[in-house]
Amino acid sequence: MKQLVILSGKGGTGKTSVVAALSRLAGRSVLADCDVDAADLHLVMSPEPGEPHEFSGRSQAVADPQRCTDCGLCVEHCRFSALSLDPLRVDGIACEGCGLCARICPEEALSMQPVVNGEWRVSQTSWGPLVHAALGIAEDNSGKLVTLVRAEARRVADEDGLDLILVDGSPGIGCPVIASLSGASMVLVVTEPTIAGRHDLGRVLGLVQHFHLPFAVCINKYDLNAEMAQEIEVGASEAGARFVARIRHDRAVTDAMVAGKSVIDRSREGAAADLIEMWTQLSDELQAVAMEAQGR
């Protein structure tokens, strides 16, 4: 089974639009939206929504002010400034769920209780099953939810006999991104020819190289600054990218998204042509990577 993870470092470079296009080109495959705190892939997949399942990634301290004698031991020891007295209160946003307060309280005025902090579902689309989740507002533990989404995607792929998982990742390089990389066959980084895009590409490539994963780079809206696109292309090749694709700036991509579709649904020209060409190269590389992995 092949798992292609799409990342970007900088947000808003076009990860989700690229994933939507690939889903149309790759044949039936499993889609996993691992950008759980801003999950947008379903907006361009017209899914038949599946049953929601609750996700509980952590516990949180719950106060019983009746038992509290205001001794202040918990407040003194909490490193996250999550507790206050008179009456005893837990700041649910600051609490990291370490359980120290519940252990230390001599009056048993604090206890740990699991928090439901998201939900996930397997929905059906014309291009294959979509595993997606929604993290509760302001919730922690996106890494755990990403791991769950990824595991479900593998289970669904096994069940349905599908050979490819397309993973839409988070921006950045932190916990949810690291969680989305486990089990990856290859990473496609979507960047843009801007100073911010170039800077963050360097950071995400650093992460991908840290995990010794094969990667390709695609420069979205490359004609916004052809000179910088050229520099990025050279830099990415030197860093070991298996190939670098260019996608032109095309209003049709946004227009398709506004209509809840992918540009591939509507056109074979412009950015759509570039995406089709990229998929040809990408599917060859994925095949090669899978063969190499089998060889080992």
């Binding site: 947000g11 705190d37 801003a38 946003i93 507002i137 302001a138 919730e139 922690d140 996106s142 921006p171």
Partner: peptide
């Protein structure tokens, strides 16, 4: 702020 809607954003907004 960072993008997203989870703990890092909340920490920034605090």
């Amino acid at each position: 702020a960072p993008p997203g809607a989870s703990c890092s954003v909340v920490e920034t907004l605090h």
